[in-house]
Design a protein around this nucleic acid. Structure first.
Length: 350
DNA sequence: TCTGGGGTCCTATTGCCA
DNA sequence: TCTGTGGCAATAGGACCC
């Protein structure tokens, strides 16, 4: 038995907790630049059609009376850590899957629903935050169930019930099947989960590959992982920036990319991480996105070196149009005996 | 009127090597 | 010496998630 716990409108709720005068008003957590997007919106703002990832300019038009609050990720991290400490007092096996959601292995618990009710009450009492829980036989069913009666929902579902209940729903209901895949499935005459479940496996393999084809069909039947992933290792780290206005000047591009590289190196340093793969990302004004990468013999060991490599990659590509985004990424981390990655300690603490 | 930043994972392609 | 095949690693693009 697995539960998925999801905090309701998490970032917005943290903001409301310290600004109670805003309770009941539509609140949008978002940056303020011309190209900002919505991070989270309260349910009052969602009633106007506002949702995460929507351009903030559009959200303002939909809901002119909304209060805009800039994101404060340090505060969200602190609140998140409070919540997950409480969860860990109740349940032994916990997989945190982001600041605001995670999976709980309820094992052979006799009364899972009652246990989750107690947990939700405890979280609400001690943090003032509301969460929703879904309970099912695997992570997929649990996650879909947690979404059903948000906010403050508590839903238990078997795999068979999920199949029945969502037979006519769009494949996009399933996490992992996004807009692009939903569209391609519809074009193949598979507009529902039932159709996807009953489709010819060969057809799916032909269109989505040997792995993804069968995977899609399994998801449609609500088969999912029954084991939690307790110790995830970071695979890459990156830093990127979208400009308020497109940038055509090559020298300015180099300067900004160097700055991003130095920032990134500092963050890696703090975690004791060194990587062999260095990549840049360039998004042009027409939204074409290009990445260029290089793998080194030895891990990159200095901020200057990372900055130099990034600029070399940029010069080799030499963007032919104005640029709206620049980014740097480092991956393929190597084990470093002198500076063990703090992830190990983090998961022990959890 | 446009579309963030931080990530993970999958696939196709290409070059190298046995 | 030429050709085909399969494995592997690196690269690029893209879908998707919070």
């Amino acid at each position: 038995v697995i539960a998925h716990l999801d905090l309701d409108a998490f970032y917005a709720s943290v903001e409301l907790r310290r600004r109670p005068e805003l309770v009941g008003r539509p609140v949008i957590v978002s940056g303020s630049g011309p190209r900002a997007v919505v991070t989270t919106a309260t349910y009052e703002a969602r009633a106007f059609g506002v949702h995460s990832a929507m351009p903030t300019t559009r959200a303002r038009r939909l809901c002119p009376d909304a209060v805009l609050v800039p994101p404060d990720f340090d505060a969200y991290r602190r609140a998140s850590s409070d919540v997950w400490s409480i969860v860990c007092e109740h349940i032994e096996l916990v997989e945190q899957a982001g600041l605001d959601e995670g999976y709980l292995d309820l094992g052979e618990l006799v009364a899972p629903k009652a246990a989750m009710r107690r947990l939700l009450a405890d979280i609400r009492e001690r943090t003032g935050l509301s969460a929703s829980v879904g309970i099912g036989p695997n992570k997929l069913v649990a996650k879909v169930a947690s979404d059903l009666e948000k906010p403050a929902g508590l839903v238990l579902l078997s795999r068979e019930e999920a199949c029945e209940r969502f037979a006519d729903a769009s494949p996009g209901l399933v996490p992992g099947i996004g807009p692009r895949t939903t569209e391609r499935l519809a074009a193949l005459g598979l507009p529902t989960l039932r159709a996807l479940r009953e489709a010819d496996p060969a057809l799916l393999r032909a269109h989505f590959g040997e792995n993804t084809g069968p995977h899609l069909q399994a998801r449609a039947a609500f088969h999912g992982a029954t084991e939690l992933t307790l110790d995830r290792e970071l695979k890459s780290q990156s830093s990127e920036r979208t400009f308020d206005y497109d940038l055509a000047d090559a020298q300015r591009q180099r300067e900004i990319l160097s700055g991003l590289a130095r920032d990134l190196f500092e963050r890696l340093e703090r975690r004791g991480l060194r990587g062999r793969n260095v990549a840049i990302k360039v998004r042009l004004d027409d939204w074409t996105t290009v990445t260029r990468a290089r793998t080194l013999e030895r891990p990159c060991a200095a901020a200057d070196e990372l900055a130099r490599l990034a600029v070399e990659l940029l010069d080799a590509y030499a963007p032919a149009r104005p640029v709206r985004l620049l980014g740097v990424r480092v991956g393929t981390f190597v084990a470093d005996a002198q500076a063990p990655a703090p992830e190990a300690q983090l998961s022990l603490g959890l």
